[in-house]
Structure formats: C-alpha cells, structure tokens
Design a protein around this nucleic acid. Structure first.
Length: 277
DNA sequence: CTTACACCCTGCTCGC
DNA sequence: TGCGAGCAGGGTGTAA
C-alpha cells in the first residue's frame, strides 16, 4: 500500500463503533499512502494530505487485500457485481489495482482521520501507555508502573494506559509463562520503593517472548480470523492456557489442569500449579 | 484515584 | 429441530 493512491473509497454505513469522520471518502480520495505503522492496537497510514488514517479492528475487524492485475473489474474480486458479503463496511480502491476491504461483524472497530503532526497527542493516542515490544518495557518499568497497585495483575496488564497493546490472550499466556497468578495484586512485582522484584523481570521477558513468538507464527487465528490473503495464523497451537479450560497444563512436567475464572468481565485461563497465589 | 459492571453488536455453541 | 443462555479477541461510560 505504501506509495499507492486512493482512487475510490466506498463507505457503506455512517458508523462502526463510532461515526466515521466527516467527508471520509472525499478526504481519502487522491491521497497517497506515505507510510504504514502501528501504535498499540491501532494501524496508522500517513497520507500525502497531511492527515493520518488510524484504524482499530476491535474484536472482529479484518482487512482483506485483493489485487486485480491490470484493469479493475469487479468480478475479479471476491464478490460479484450486485452482491455484497455481509459486514463489508468499507472498500478502498487504489491506483495500483489493489482493493482493500474492511469487514467487521460486531462493528467494534473504528476509523478516524487526524492531523499527522502531533499524532501522539490525538485523542486516541494521548492516554496510551508504553509499547510492549518497545525498549521501555523492562522489569524496572513494570515495577514503576505497578508499584502499590492492588488491582489484579490481569487487569493491570490489560490497562492500555499502562501498557498499550496487550490483549486477553497474551496477558493470560504471559502470566502463565511468568508463573504469576492473575489475581495477585499488580504491586507484588515491585518493592515498596518501586524497585523490580525478580518477577518483574520475568514478566517483562515473557511478555516480549510470547508476542515475538506469536508474530513469528503469523498471529493467533481464532474462529473467523484470517490473514489478509485468507491464510490462517497458527499461534493458537502455541497457547498453553488460553481457551484450554479443563485440559492439562501444557508446561513440561506439570500435572495441573487449566482453570477459567472471570476478571473484569473477561475470561482468564491459568494453571494453579504453575501460577500459585 | 480506584474497581465493577452494563453496554456496544452479531453470531456461534451448548444444554434443554 | 427449536430456543434461550452464555460467550467471544476490543474499548467506553457510568456509578460507587
């Protein structure tokens, strides 16, 4: 997409989770994509117009990328003229012949256009915490962020104001790998003065490790999730606890059974043997 | 400042 | 076979 120009944007409804910005298709038409990046769970496309398109997939959002070599013919894409797959909400066409379709069953995703200058200060990004794969994530940082917190580790790790980018799956997996109980108060990884305990270093290391392994495996395809080319991610085979309630703990030599509890309305999976209180 | 919970939306699975 | 309950990867807003 980098270097490509939007030729047509078909916005098929007024809102997803939030309303689209005013004149959304018109503000994109003719714009060139200068760069693509990511911040937390947002995708960011910097445009030649001085605006950036930021996109959040919510729970079920996905982009499908298709390419018509040569002239674009609707029939060459994944739906025939006059028909429309359910929940295809936005279709972006590019001068390269590429077509990018945004599909989102539950419509928890959203898009916005914000000035590229001062992107970090925009309302979506202003309150975000550190990147879990950035240099800032360390035992020292975790200790400083979690010091004195009585909120459970699970909730603290999911709090995007502290660390921005971890979701339910990888929080469960990281806590399991670090041997930490999800209900333990977040403050246990720090001393009273905010110095990291060994568990803080371990947790930082396992967060990095599980994310890097998942990325290398092509992500975690669940249910209806797929890559832009329709292929599947395979990291779900690497889950040690997530969605494995009642199954044996996958840690070598562990005889525990994975348990499921609910914390702040979300499922938490853990092994009480690997993750004692 | 916390934490808890309802809510946003659709679709799938499970138990009866 | 049909039907309601519960659940799902995300985040927000409100109340306590």
């Amino acid at each position: 997409m980098v270097g490509a120009r939007f030729t047509k944007v078909d916005q098929r409804r007024a809102d997803l989770r939030f309303p689209f910005p005013p004149r959304f298709p018109a503000r994109l038409a003719g714009a060139r994509v200068e760069a693509l990046s990511r911040r937390a769970k947002y995708l960011v496309a910097d445009l030649s117009t001085g605006e950036s398109l930021i996109m959040h997939l919510g729970m079920t959002g996905r982009f499908t990328v298709e390419h018509a070599h040569g002239v674009i013919t609707p029939g060459e894409f994944h739906y025939a003229p006059g028909t429309m797959p359910l929940h295809d909400h936005v279709v972006f066409d590019f001068d390269t012949g590429a077509r990018v379709t945004y599909n989102d069953v539950r419509r928890f995703g959203y898009m916005d256009l914000v000035p590229s200058t001062g992107l970090a200060a925009c309302k979506h990004f202003a309150g975000l915490g550190i990147e879990p794969l950035g240099n800032a994530l360390s035992g020292e940082t975790l200790a400083a962020l979690f010091r004195g917190k009585i909120a459970p580790l699970k909730a603290a790790l999911l709090d995007q104001r502290l660390i921005a980018g971890l979701g339910n799956i990888y929080v469960c997996e990281a806590l399991h790998r670090a041997g930490l109980h999800p209900e333990a108060p977040a403050g246990i990884v720090a001393t009273r003065t905010g110095r990291p305990r060994a568990s803080a270093h371990r947790l930082a290391q396992e967060i990095r490790a599980v994310l890097n392994e998942a990325v290398a495996a092509g992500g975690s395809t669940l249910r209806d999730f797929a890559h832009a080319d329709g292929s599947l991610g395979y990291f779900q085979h690497g889950f040690k606890v997530y969605d494995r309630e009642g199954e044996p703990c996958a840690a070598p030599g562990c005889s525990g059974i994975v348990e499921r509890i609910v914390q702040s309305g979300r499922s938490t999976f853990y092994c009480a043997r690997c993750q004692p209180r």
